[in-house]
C-alpha cells in the first residue's frame, strides 16, 4: 500500500495518524487542558490574592471595600523593616551555606563513586533523608536538639567536652542562626543532588589534560569544576532562594518566630497576619510581596535555563 493510500485511508477513517497531524498543527488544542488547569490552580488564586490586597477584607467580616490602605499601612508598619532584615539574613545565609555544603558533599560523593568506595550509596541516602523529612518534623527535631535544658542534645555534648552551654534559641541574636542551621540541614541535600548531577557530566578528559599540564587540585576546581558547574550553580541558587523565602513550616515549631520577633521571616509574618490577626488584606499584601520576589527569582531562572543548558 502506497503512502497516498495510507493518507487517504486516514482521512476517511479519522485514524490516529491524521489526528496527530492536526494536533501538531494546532498546539492550542493540546495545550488547552494544561492551560486551563494552570489557570484554575495557579493563576486564579494568584489574581484573587492580588485582588484581596486592594481591599480592607478581614476573616471576621464578610463585607469589604476596595482600597489601597493595606499597602499604605504596610509601608508605615514599624515591624516591616525588621521582618525584611530577618528574612534577608535567613535567605542569604541559608542559600550560601546550602550551596557551599552541597557542593562539598557532592564533590566528596563524586570522588567516592569514582574510587568505588564502599558505602557511598548509604551516605547519599542518609543525606537525602534529611530533605525528605517534612519541614514541621525537621523543626521539632531541631527544637529537641537546641533545647537549652540540661538534657538538651547539643548542650549536653558541649558540657561533655567542657564547653559552656549555648543559648541556641533564647538569645535573639543566636536564634536566627539556629534557624539557619536547621534550614541548611534540611536543604543541603537538594543542593547536593543538583550539583552531583552537574559534576558527573563534566568530561574527565578536562581533568586529565589539566593534570598533564601540572594544574593543582585547587586550580582544577577553580578553572574546570566551577565554570562547568556555573549553570547548575545559578539555577540551584535561584531554586533554593525561592524555597527558603517561602519557608515557615520549619520555623513555626522551632521558635514560632521568637523570642519576640527575632526569627519571624516574611512567610511566617504573612501566616500570622492572616491566621492570628485574621487580617486577610494585609496578609494578601505580604503574599503579593512574596510573590513578586519569587517572580523575580523565577525570571532569572527562566532566563538562565535555555541559554546555559
Amino acid at each position: 500500500m502506497s503512502e497516498h493510500a495510507v493518507a487517504g485511508t486516514a482521512e476517511r477513517t479519522g485514524s490516529p495518524h491524521k489526528r496527530a497531524w492536526h494536533l501538531a498543527e494546532r498546539p492550542l488544542v493540546w495545550l488547552a487542558p494544561l492551560t486551563l488547569l494552570l489557570l484554575i490552580t495557579y493563576v486564579y488564586p494568584a489574581i484573587d490574592v492580588i485582588r484581596y490586597s486592594f481591599t480592607d477584607a478581614t476573616l471576621l467580616n464578610p463585607e469589604y471595600a476596595y482600597t489601597t490602605d493595606s499597602y499604605r499601612a504596610l509601608i508605615r508598619s514599624p515591624d516591616l523593616p525588621g521582618i525584611l532584615w530577618v528574612t534577608f539574613v535567613f535567605v542569604v545565609a541559608s542559600v550560601v551555606l546550602q550551596l557551599v555544603l552541597g557542593l562539598l558533599v557532592a564533590m566528596v560523593l563524586n570522588r567516592g563513586v569514582k574510587r568505588r568506595l564502599p558505602g557511598v550509596s548509604v551516605v547519599r541516602i542518609i543525606i537525602l533523608s534529611a530533605w525528605i523529612v517534612p519541614g514541621v518534623a525537621a523543626g521539632i527535631v531541631w527544637q529537641l536538639m537546641f533545647n537549652e535544658a540540661s538534657y538538651g542534645f547539643l548542650n549536653a555534648i558541649l558540657r561533655g567536652v567542657g564547653v559552656s552551654p549555648v543559648a541556641w534559641l533564647s538569645d535573639p541574636d543566636l536564634a536566627l542562626w539556629s534557624a539557619v542551621i536547621a534550614n541548611v540541614w534540611r536543604g543541603t541535600a537538594f543542593s547536593m543532588l543538583l550539583l552531583y548531577a552537574g559534576l558527573v557530566v563534566i568530561p574527565s578528559s578536562l581533568y586529565e589534560a589539566a593534570s598533564v599540564d601540572g594544574a593543582t587540585a585547587l586550580k582544577q576546581f577553580w578553572y574546570i569544576t566551577l565554570p562547568q558547574l556555573r549553570p547548575i550553580l545559578l539555577i540551584n541558587t535561584v531554586l533554593i532562594s525561592i524555597f527558603t523565602l517561602n519557608t515557615f513550616d520549619l520555623i513555626l515549631p522551632l521558635t514560632g518566630g521568637g523570642p519576640g520577633r527575632a526569627t519571624e521571616v516574611l512567610a511566617l509574618y504573612t501566616y500570622n497576619t492572616v491566621f492570628r490577626n485574621f487580617d486577610l488584606s494585609n496578609g494578601a499584601v505580604l503574599a503579593v510581596i512574596l510573590l513578586l520576589i519569587s517572580i523575580v527569582f523565577t525570571l532569572i531562572y527562566v532566563r538562565l535555563l535555555p541559554r546555559e543548558l
Binding site: P172, G258, P259, R261, R276
Partner: peptide, 28 residues
C-alpha cells in the same frame, strides 16, 4: 472577643522581648 487572638499574639512577642532582654517592659 474577636481581638483576643491579636492581643495574645502581641503579648507573646512582648514576653519574648522582655524575657530575652531585647526591650524594657514599657517599650515592649
Amino acid at each position: 472577643v474577636p481581638i483576643y487572638p491579636e492581643i495574645s499574639n502581641q503579648i507573646q512577642i512582648t514576653m519574648g522581648e522582655v524575657l530575652s532582654g531585647t526591650k524594657e517592659p514599657e517599650a515592649a
